[in-house]
Each structure stands twice: as C-alpha cells, then as structure tokens.
Simulated assay, not measured.
Amino acid sequence: MRDLDMVTFVVLARNRHFGRTAEQLNTTQPAISSRLAALEAEFGCRLVHRGDREFQLTLEGERVLVVFKEILGLIDRLKDSVKSPDGHVPDVVRIGAIDSVASTWMPHLMESLQQIAPNLRVELIVEGTQRLVAEMVNGEFDLIFCLDPAIGDGFRSFNVCVWEMIWAGSPKLIDEARTYDVDELAQMPIITFPKNTPPYRQIAPYFQDESVLASKMTSSNSLFAIINLLIAGFGISAIPSITIQRELEMGLLRPIDVSKRFPPMPIIGTYQSSTHQDVIQVVVEQARRSARDFCDNAAGKTAWII
C-alpha cells in the first residue's frame, strides 16, 4: 500500500467526487478509480458504495478513512520533526532486529522510511534476542524486533508477525518418503541456537515432552551459519521456513515430514515510550505495514499476522 493511495482515498472521501479528486491531485479520473480498486483488492472489501448518485463510503470505508488520516498525520509530523534549516539530521532512530527479521521485511521498512523522511537517520543493529533486550533496557535502542519483549514502565510491546517453523535438512540426510517421529529426530544431529536463547527454549520442550533428549546438538548464534551447516549436511534444524525459501526451491534443503509439528515463532516489537514519540510512532506504524505486506505476499502459511 502506497502513501499516494492513502492520500487519494482521504481526498476522495473529502471531495466525494472522482472528477474533483483527480483535478486536485493533478491526475485523471481513471487513475483515481484504479487506486481505489487497488485498495479494495488489498482490503478484500468495498470501501465506496457503487451505483448510487450520491457518493457514500461503506462502513469498512469509514474505518479505513479514520486509520488513513491517523497514519498520514503521523507521517506529516515525522516530516516536520526531521526538518532543519541547515539540512542536518536532528533525529536518529536506533533499531535492533534478529537476523530472521533483518533478512525478510526490514529492507522494506528502511525503504519506506527513506521515502517519507529522507532526513531521518536510521541505525540498524542485528543481534540475538537476549542481547537486543538487554541493550534495550540499557537505553541502546529506540525499537527492537525479536522473540522476547523488553519489560519495564518505559516500554511498549506489540505482536508484529509470526513465522512458521519447520524441521529441515540436507537431501543427504532426509528421506522424503518418511514421516519422522520425535524419537527418530532425536537420533539425528541437531543444529540450533545457543542454550537459554528463545529458539533453544522451544527446542528443549519439543523433545522433553516426549521424554526424549537429543543425542547430539550443535549451536550457533547466527541464522546464516545455521543455514550453511544445514546445506553442508551437518544436521537438521527447526527453522523459520520463510528464511530458507530460496534453499528449498533450489533443492539445497528439504522440509522434514514430522508427526509432531514444531510451534510457530512470534516476532515481538518493543519501543521506548518516552523519547521523540512522533518519530517512533511513525516508525512503528511503518514496521507494522512492512511486516503485513511481507506476510501477505509470503508463499503458503510461512508467515502471518496475528
């Protein structure tokens, strides 16, 4: 969804006329109709009643209008907050993210922020959840995206998206014709994140629920390293499927058919609630939009919004 589409809808709702809206936005009436159709296709519902002589929004259109006005107002305030007469950048937003976020929808967020506030400087650090939360508490970040929230009076947390988790491994290790139970998985070498990290906290109960302990584990704090170890055939791993789509398509990795599914992994955002709120609120809203757009375009049930 483009900012232009939101502006078009707000102006259309105010003018209540396609021709006047096209004139005000210096475009054509078919272009206005096309933008409206794109919005309705994205939301999956009608936003404007058709066939009546009098222009009228649907109930869904009224709700969308309220949200669009809020978003555009936040964007305007952000642009004002980062303007300076001498061209210097007065504000920096410090964002931390785990690598599964950095490698998926984070580039879209960075691009959208560059478009709406080119003077805003963004510092992005990619770390594990434990370190991100600790540094957030110490004031090192304005906003983080990871697997645990930062807890405290000065923080606000929200659910961003959810990753599907699958067991995967090299074709050298996996028999595609088999369905593996927990005992069989436990007999294979397993690659996971280090002990006491959120992904490990999901791995351990997966086996302990069945009174089974993994016989051999290799750990790494890097998703990139884990993927390379999987490709090399060093073991299997429970991993977000969205992060290995290319490797699956190329046949470098295979999903494992299992009798017990691995629980999905929620991505949580936490932001400072006391510093330059106009800027932070816009970044949070853009992050929600970037994650939603990414999930909407993700294949199958690999990623979704709660």
Score class of each variant (00 low, 15 high):
R121K: 12
D5K: 01
M1P: 11
A204W: 10
D80L: 09
L72H: 00
G61T: 04
A238V: 00
T243W: 01
T179R: 07
Q56M: 06
A134R: 09
L143A: 05
K79E: 13
D91C: 02
V67C: 07
L72E: 00
G235D: 02
A31W: 10
S215Q: 15
P149R: 06
S84M: 07
A287L: 13
L65Y: 08
F141D: 03
R289C: 06
A117P: 04
G169L: 04
F43W: 09
Q187E: 15
I174L: 05
Q281L: 07
Q130C: 03
E40T: 09
V122I: 15
G269Q: 05
T8Q: 06
L72C: 00
C146H: 02
I231A: 02
A298H: 01
P107L: 12
E164F: 03
A150S: 13
Q187M: 12
L173N: 01
D76C: 08
Y200R: 03
D296I: 00
G233C: 04
I151V: 15
F262C: 05
F55G: 04
L229P: 01
S273A: 15
P255R: 11
P149Q: 06
R178W: 05
T27Y: 11
L4P: 03
G154E: 14
V258N: 01
I166D: 13
L252N: 11
P171G: 07
T302N: 13
K79D: 05
E247S: 13
S34K: 15
T179E: 14
E111Y: 09
F55T: 04
R46C: 05
L213D: 14
